[in-house]
Design a protein around this nucleic acid. Sequence first.
DNA 1: CGTGAAATTGACTAAGTTCAATGGCGGTGG
DNA 2: CCACCGCCATTGAACTTAGTCAATTTCACG
Lengths: 214, 214
Amino acid sequence: MDSVREIPLFNKLSEEHFRQLEHFSYFKTYNAGEIVFYEGDDPGTLYILVDGVLRLYKTDPKGHEFYIHQFVPVSLVGELACFENMKYPATARFITSGKILKIDYKRLENDFFKNPDICFEIIKSLTRKVKILSNVIHQEMILTSDAKVAKFIINHFDIFNSLKNNEVASILNITPETLSRTLAKFKKQRWIEQPRHANTKILNKAALKKLFEE
Amino acid sequence: MDSVREIPLFNKLSEEHFRQLEHFSYFKTYNAGEIVFYEGDDPGTLYILVDGVLRLYKTDPKGHEFYIHQFVPVSLVGELACFENMKYPATARFITSGKILKIDYKRLENDFFKNPDICFEIIKSLTRKVKILSNVIHQEMILTSDAKVAKFIINHFDIFNSLKNNEVASILNITPETLSRTLAKFKKQRWIEQPRHANTKILNKAALKKLFEE
DNA sequence: CGTGAAATTGACTAAGTTCAATGGCGGTGG
DNA sequence: CCACCGCCATTGAACTTAGTCAATTTCACG
């Protein structure tokens, strides 16, 4: 994807707007591990993720990363900070290599947002984010560690199997030790099975579900 | 406020739309303590708070209320559940008596959302919510209890003074005991002072700030 | 005053994290 | 081929933070 014209968010833009947009936006490629913006950075740039996986996280005073979400293309990122003119509330780091369209927000004409199609896309994006954050709150504040692990195994079984426990723990915002102990507990109850060199098997889905469905 | 015509969200609506809207919406008054909807309820109703204070909270498996936000008029509530057709992710309860406009979402014509002014209001409402939830995550996941209390004292000094510690604790999602101990700690450090029958005095704002600004 | 709610305090508990030790496993290089 | 290295996983013990429970004191207010 090399042109703003290919971005779904803008698919109904007028030719005039396209030409404007091209003047104050550009594509940038990133390597895995590179930071797009830091929590606390001043706003002003709107990001559209067009390639790669972008992780959003906050950092606590002890330096621990608190995982919030991983975006996949095509996603609008950073609009809250821009709309509200507040510092970015989280850090964005590429997990894979990727590409982003960077847009100078301040130079976007207001009438840009008069376009109903753009508005609709923005509403969709914001709605997704409310949902994401609402889920984060549920997962982190309401569920116990056991419940989080059980939910992840059931709802993201393939991801669970493809990632190292290390990575799973970081997504769940628990330590690898806690994950290890929780899995040991599940195995002891014979709710799951982890044969050597093979995928985890769920033996008692109902028991696992009971942990996170009240 | 007795007419949909007075609601800012709709102030640019056509006469035609007003008449439509009046057909599938109605005002309802509530007493303090009454529930507007429960977490887990099926969606379908859009709420516009026009009078009173409405608390949004989740309930954890132990039955504790997890405070998320208190809305004041005029606020759109429940739009996420409606847009995404998902169960309400939290419970809404009136703290004071109040009044709400209930709108049957399914009967809203799609062209309702073609109205740019409506879209703009929805974007504003969603933006507010992303901000609210983002703050909730910061407060609850990143800050310690001490930091939460310090932040609340400084940023909501008047509210802190006007509420019972009981209430403050519930807003901060900590127990009254923890709040009491934290305040005792602050007093011992001479960061605050609490003369009998008088408002709390902040003696060392910088020290308090350092607790929640990294 | 007296009564019931709110606040305080102490001892204990619960849930997870931290730290440290150990074991497994795969890849690499002599 | 195997010894070594580094990363990951596991396990135990101590620690941290805040919640729980219970007893007591304070307070507001009729």
